[in-house]
Design a protein around this nucleic acid. Structure first.
Lengths: 344, 344
DNA sequence: GTTAGCACTCCTTGTTGCCGAGTGCTAATT
DNA sequence: AATTAGCACTCGGCAACAAGGAGTGCTAAC
């Protein structure tokens, strides 16, 4: 199972070539490469072995070879030559941060756009986890007799709002008192923990000050119940249409449908721990992604993981380049965010 | 140029048949239809005339006929038999309004989903025009020494927020005074007119009360400058992939790219006046939509047009059904919204 | 005015044959 | 023992061709 140096070389050249050309690569064309100094017959023997070991495949009996998923996996794990980004790519990525930034979402959106433009694949960016942000302030603004909107501002400037109906028994004074209590008790609490805290600490206080406190309590707790989903941003959703492996409409269809079905992507991307992760083909456990690879990286504030950036491309994707790009952007995002939010 | 009854009949049957089958229709298959009592030779003569008049076309010399854009146009304008929705469709549409509704966006989103499911085309819904909503309340919440977030709540419960940097010369007291002045002067003003009003009325007041008022003024006015874009919602973006006329990847590609390029759609849809509008093929003035038709309807609160719902399908689309669906949903949306917001 | 009949056109489908790129195997070479 | 040259074989892709079918336009008869 240990590959010889020559086998490694051949595997690497096959993968590189196939990534470039999307054509099965044959022994003769390999033998002409600079890196390779032995004859096509030798290569044929080696390729036959590599095929037995499962690293490459034939598309039909007398065709050239194509990397298998196992082949890509080995390539990614052992053969990848870390590529240095060229100056142009670097400056394009840095242009994301050129303007003054208040709305973090804008940065995220721009990142998605630029990633997809740079790679010609589909980019996916998972927005910053709102739920770990800390509450800065709650406001309740009555719209009319029956409804009001509750506004939650986090220390990062993110704003969530929920409309709810005001319990009949509650009057304007009650509302104001409630808001004061909430702000008093909940400022600095991560959004995730609000619900908990409301029942544990705020409930008591409300009871002391508000007539009919429990309806109010539940109304507010309910507003907070809906999970605050991180937003997903996409770039170049249609880029996959240009990839030769997706000449087949039904493949495209299932892939695009899956992308539009954000839930799937969300789960696929969210759980990743820090660092670069490469999922190849069926490793993604999804029919629609059989011919796709997904590379993800995370960005953080300080030590705290905030969100994810990812590239979805064909298995035949430029792993080396994409990894470099993601690494670079992820670091930049982290730096900027850390500077921006660290010491609030 | 006036068509005989028989020509009208033939045109109608051709369009109907082609919409159903997507196959060019020939004289013989026409002659077999129930509605038609004359021979294929007669039909051939009539079809030849209809072709000369530009209502139908051949795909090649000896093929059956296919409606031209002019043919569709005539069909839509004169031959459409208004279709009554079946009970199932009706109840599916009404299910949109089943739950209690606070967030209007949810309704809009659900509408888009259901429209596309029902038709198997792509649905586009333009969210309610925020800019005509009236300001209910402004809040400014400082995040730290340098930045604050301004929150604008409309009488419909919509919340807009902008982060800005606090001018160095402004202190907490100034901020509070500013907010009070703003709320005092701007409550009830449509968001569209805020900027105007700020310079005309608020500026003076600010000058009287706030040190260094003009920086504050510009900061706030700037936040409001970015146009408040109505949001676009889509349903069934990938539905077009199942249409036989889009077997060609490059067509799909340009169409999907145009859809993702929301600006285009926005302009296409926004300007429509009330009522149903049908744009066929090149009437949309867009290469990517050459084989598409766009049917739009508007929804309102009372007399005031709020937004648009639309279906994008192949020119060979079920005009009658789609028009009925849009009419029905548009009326329902209007009713619900009017009831909800009319007398605030 | 309508229709039956017929020649003609063009798309579609299937067949065939051929070329080129590639393989696997064997035997010769290093 | 490893490498290579040589050769027979396989398969996809392409072009050429034929047959069949759906449709048309035209003419002449009804």
């Amino acid at each position: 199972m240990l590959l010889t140096d020559r086998q490694l070389l051949i595997l690497q050249v096959i993968v590189d070539d196939f990534i470039r050309s999307a054509q099965p690569v044959g022994s003769r064309s390999l033998s002409k490469k600079e890196e390779i100094s032995f004859s096509s017959a030798t290569i044929r023997n080696e390729m036959s072995d590599l095929e037995d070991l499962g690293f490459i495949e034939k598309t039909h009996t007398s065709s050239g070879r194509v990397p298998s998923e196992k082949g890509y996996r080995y390539y990614v794990d052992h053969l990848l030559s870390p590529q240095v980004l060229n100056q142009q790519d670097v400056s394009i990525i840095q242009s994301i941060f050129a303007e003054k930034i208040f709305e973090f979402e804008k940065i995220i959106q721009r990142s998605a756009k630029i990633l997809s433009d740079l790679t010609n694949y589909t980019s996916i960016v998972l927005g910053p986890a709102v739920s770990i942000n800390k509450l800065k302030r709650i406001q309740i603004i009555p719209l009319n007799k029956e409804t009001a909107v509750a506004i939650f501002v986090t220390d990062t400037g993110h704003v969530e709002n929920r409309t709810f109906s005001i319990p009949a028994s509650v009057d304007a004074g009650d509302l104001e008192k409630t808001v004061n209590i909430l702000n008093d008790r909940l400022a600095g609490v991560p959004l995730d923990d609000l619900n908990d805290k409301i029942y544990k600490e705020v409930a008591m206080l409300l009871r002391q000050h508000i007539h009919n406190y429990d309806l109010m309590l539940h109304t507010i707790a309910d507003s907070l119940k809906m999970p605050i989903h991180e937003k997903l941003f996409f770039g170049g959703k249609t880029n996959m249409l240009s990839q030769p492996e997706f000449h087949d409409i039904s493949k495209i269809r299932s892939l695009l449908m899956m992308i539009d079905q954000e839930e799937w992507i969300y789960n696929l991307i969210r759980k990743n721990s820090a660092g670069i992760h490469v999922k190849i083909g069926r490793e993604n456990n999804n029919r629609a992604m059989e011919n796709c690879s997904l590379i993800t990286a995370t960005y953080s504030v300080g030590q705290e993981k905030l969100g994810t950036i990812a590239i979805l491309g064909p298995t035949r994707m430029e792993y080396s380049r994409v990894i470099s790009l993601l690494q670079f952007l992820s670091k930049d995002l982290t730096d900027v965010l850390t500077k921006l939010y660290q010491n609030n």
